[in-house]
């Protein structure tokens, strides 16, 4: 992706987000039960959506790498995973802030947050695995296989933990379903700048990965003889 396109995307994201924040803070009314802090939901939920989208993208990229053995798919897999981890962290942190304000405790073992935490650790493990393998083709292969396993685990994790929590209920961060039409609209509206940010960051990371690979090739050539 050309640099100009990247800058435009980032600018658009920043502008849209600023506009959204203005609306969120000034226009939308307070929510009945939760007060002012509920506004964090407009970042909390789309961040989760983006993280899950990143998971899906990484999974597809990993499958394509194993089929085609083209390193660009490997670069896409690691880029989407890393950026997805950032958005997942955003989801976790906003969730914790929300819980702290509403319930007075930082962490409530809420089903969704716990599942996100497990998936976060899982994909962080993916990065750890990558770092441990020196040789690029072996690294890409091992990472791709692990990514496929991780992706298969994600739905099972969410499902099992939600089930566990229905049997042993704990404070829930967001019960869902309270919102009126304006709020739902803002939720989706605010997803747009986050998606733009996601795409721009992934493109940046892929570029970095490509440069790293070229550098690695030069280094091997230099050390070979």
């Amino acid at each position: 992706m050309r640099s100009k396109t990247l800058y435009i995307m980032l600018l658009a994201a920043a502008w849209l987000m600023a506009a959204d924040i203005a609306v969120i803070l000034l226009v939308l009314p307070d929510e009945a039960a939760q007060g002012a802090v509920y506004r964090i939901i407009f970042f909390h939920v789309p961040a989760a959506w983006t993280a899950l989208l990143a998971c899906l993208a990484a999974f597809l990229a990993s499958c394509l790498y194993l089929l085609k053995r083209d390193f660009r798919w490997d670069a896409l897999a690691v880029a989407t995973t890393e950026v997805g981890l950032a958005f997942g962290a955003a989801n976790l942190i906003t969730g914790m802030i929300w819980a702290r304000v509403i319930w007075g405790i930082w962490w409530t073992w809420d089903a969704r947050l716990t599942s996100m935490l497990v998936c976060w650790v899982l994909y962080a493990g993916y990065l750890m695995l990558r770092r441990a393998v020196e040789e690029p083709a072996q690294r890409a292969r091992a990472a791709a296989v692990f990514n496929i396993f991780a992706f298969a685990d994600v739905p099972v994790v969410f499902f099992s933990i939600r089930w566990w929590r229905t049997q042993h209920p704990q404070p829930v961060v967001w019960g869902g379903g309270f919102m009126d039409a304006a709020m739902w609209r803002m939720l989706f509206l605010n997803w747009v700048p986050l998606l733009l940010l996601f795409v721009a960051l992934v493109a940046l990371r892929m570029r970095q990965e490509q440069a790293a690979r070229r550098l690695d090739g030069l280094r091997r050539r230099a050390h070979a003889f």
């Binding site: 497990v118 998936c119 750890m128 695995l129 396993f149 994790v157 499902f159 099992s160 933990i161």
Partner: peptide, 14 residues
Amino acid sequence: ELMLPALVYPLMIP
């Protein structure tokens, strides 16, 4: 062994 906690256990959680 260092990667066990990050790779294996999260996968096994469900």
